[in-house]
Amino acid sequence: MSPVGAPRAPEVPAARRAGRAPRTTGDLPRWVWLPAALGAALVVLPVVALLTRVDWSDLPALLMSESSRAALSLSLRTAAASTVLCVLLGVPMAFVLARSRFPGQALLRALVLLPLVLPPVVGGIALLATFGRRGLLGSSLEVLGVQVAFSTTAVVLAQTFVALPFLVISLEGSLRTAGHRYETVAATLGARPSTVLRRVSLPLVLPGLASGAVLAFARALGEFGATITFAGSLQGVTRTLPLEIYLQRETDPDAAVALSLLLVVVAVLVIVLVRGREGRS
C-alpha cells in the first residue's frame, strides 16, 4: 500500500526485532546531532588535551614526589572522613525531608541544597564567618580550646559543607521513589519507628545511599574553593590534591598536569561506578 519511493522499514525478522530495544533515533531531526556533538566535544576535548600535556615518562616520579603523596593521602583521608560525616548527618536529613511534613520544609530543602549552586569560595567565606576565630561559633570553640581554622578539621568541614547536598538529594529521591508503603506494613506488623528505619527503610534505599555516598566522596575529593578560603594551605595538614595542583602550576606545570590526570582518573572511576549501578537497577 505504501506509495512508490516512500522509505520502507528494513525487513527485520520478528524474533530479532523482539530481542532488541526499539530504536527511536530515526525520530530525531538530524541537525540535533550537530549541537549535541559540539557539546560532547566541549566536555571531552579538554580532557583529551590534558592527556596530550602529560609527561608520561616522568609521570611516576611526579606522582610519587613527597608533596604529591602528602596531598593525595590528605585528600583521601579527608574525603573519606567527610563522606562518613555526610552519611551520619545526611541520612537523617534525607529522612526528615522525605518522610515528614513541617512548616518551612520547602525553604529548608532549598537552603540545604544551597552549596550545590553556591560558588565554593562563598562557602569558604561563610564557613569562616561561622567557625573562624571571630566567627559565630569560632569564639566559643576557642574558649573550649578547639581551633578549627588552619586544621585538617577545617578541610573536612569545608568538604562536608559542599558534599552534603549530593548525599541528601540522592537519598531523598530514593526514599520518595521507594514510597512509605513498606514502612506502613512494617508498623502494622508491630515494628517501632526505630526498627522500621533500621530494618526496612534503610535497607530499601541502600543503593541510593551508596551512590549518594560515592558522589559525596567525589565532590569532597575535588573541593577547592571553600578549602583554600577556609582552611588555608599547608602540606600534609590542609593542602589537598586540588590545592597542590593549583600551587604546582606556579613552579612545575608538569606536576600539576600529572596530578590533574590523577583526579580525572578518580572522577571517571566514580562516574562509572555510579552510572554502572544505575544501569543495572
Binding site: 550545590l116 560558588p119 565554593p120 569560595v121 559542599v162 549530593f166 567525589a218 565532590r219 575535588g222 573541593e223 577547592f224 574553593g225 586540588p242 595542583i245 593549583y246 602550576r249 590533574s260 583526579l263 572522577a267 566514580v270
Partner: peptide, 9 residues
Amino acid sequence: ALLLPLAAC
C-alpha cells in the same frame, strides 16, 4: 562539580 575546582583556577 568535579570540573568546577579546575575551572575556578
